[in-house]
């Protein structure tokens, strides 16, 4: 692995090939906000709050710092007017779902986001996927899943697995940026409908 030299907010930064802008920035103490990022999980790139401005191959683009690999000569700016504006509107869209999330409200203060800009949505999940990915990648239980797509995408617990695995775990609860409540809500709801027994009882004369 060779060393890469790039520039972040005017600072020269040396990073290993294959690392991301986010990792490189953190290594020199430049803070970039994240919501769907987690040290134990594969970078995902869903929330886009880590959007930064980067000059890639002569073009200035907005890129997700958590996914964009470092390159020699890359020039990154983490707080420009354009970056702040993007983060503001991303937050406003999320706040329509989760107006009471402390984590979102703190960021809203920084970027001047108005939590009431868009009409409230009924689903208070921002679909960062931390619960789904943690349960899959770290716990390997797959008790939480994404379902549907597009505007209908949501998370659900798989009842058969959840009833077995979740009671003693619940490690996903504190990960949820919109409050653990919603995860608990889904869990409760899922647990209310008991799973169908996998082996139906015998109708004959045997003891089963």
């Amino acid at each position: 692995m060779s060393e890469i030299v790039l520039q972040i907010d005017g600072k020269e930064v040396t990073a290993q090939e294959g690392t991301t802008i986010l990792e490189a920035a953190r290594s020199v103490g430049v803070a970039i906000p994240t919501l769907c990022d987690h040290e134990k999980l594969i970078p995902y790139g869903a929330c886009r709050i880590c959007t930064v401005e980067a000059d890639v191959h002569g073009k200035t683009n907005l890129v997700a710092a958590c996914l964009q690999p470092v390159e020699n000569g890359l020039v990154v700016r983490t707080r420009t007017e354009q970056v702040d504006q993007a983060r503001k509107i991303i937050l406003e869209q999320m706040l329509a779902h989760a107006p009471d999330s402390e984590q979102l409200l703190e960021l809203a203060q920084v970027y001047g986001a108005n939590k009431d800009r868009f009409a409230k949505e009924s689903n208070f999940c921002i679909l960062c996927g931390l619960c789904v990915r943690y349960c899959d990648e770290v716990k390997k239980k797959n008790a939480v899943a994404f379902i549907e797509r597009g505007a209908k995408r949501e998370i659900v617990f798989i009842p058969d697995i959840a009833i077995r695995e979740c009671w003693d775990c619940k490690e996903c609860f504190p990960l949820c940026p919109t409050s653990a409540l919603q995860a608990a809500y889904y869990l409760t709801e899922a647990l209310m409908s008991p799973p169908v027994p996998s082996t139906p009882s015998c109708k004959g004369n045997c003891s089963k």
């Binding site: 789904v132 899959d136 797959n142 008790a143 939480v144 899943a145 994404f146 379902i147 549907e148 797509r149 659900v156 798989i158 058969d160 697995i161």
Partner: peptide, 11 residues
């Protein structure tokens, strides 16, 4: 995992 099947069958 059933989670993936649920996702695929609704995606």
């Amino acid at each position: 995992p059933m989670s993936r099947i649920r996702h695929i069958t609704t995606f």
